[in-house]
């Protein structure tokens, strides 16, 4: 594999091609699961594909979430709040 890579500029799909992008974050989305209605609006608009809907409830992959806050903005029931990373 090493040998092939040296001669052909070919890449393979994989998570974390830009590094552990979770370290870029300074606010984190926190989901209030009691309020979440599972409408998937946050999943639809997440630019980083870090939101997973499991059994109708939302889970965030904090390893790669960059903390942009689009999910909190599009949530129709305001179930997602952005909290400071140092708290």
């Amino acid at each position: 594999m090493q040998h092939e890579y040296q001669y052909f500029p070919i890449t393979v799909p994989g998570k974390g091609a830009g590094g552990q992008t979770g370290t870029w974050r300074f606010v984190r989305p926190v989901v209030n699961l009691n309020k979440c209605i599972g409408c998937r609006a946050c999943w639809m608009f997440c630019p980083e594909a870090t939101i997973h809907v499991i059994d109708g409830k939302v889970e965030v992959d904090y390893d790669y979430c960059k903390g942009c806050g689009i999910c909190a903005n599009v949530c129709p029931v305001k179930a997602i709040l952005m909290e400071g990373e140092d708290q």
Partner: peptide
């Protein structure tokens, strides 16, 4: 789109790609 791209936070092109 795999998680952990080099895009800026809130990139609309990633949304379009998904």
């Amino acid at each position: 789109l795999m998680s952990g791209t080099s895009a800026c936070p809130g990139c609309p092109e990633n949304i379009a790609m998904r």
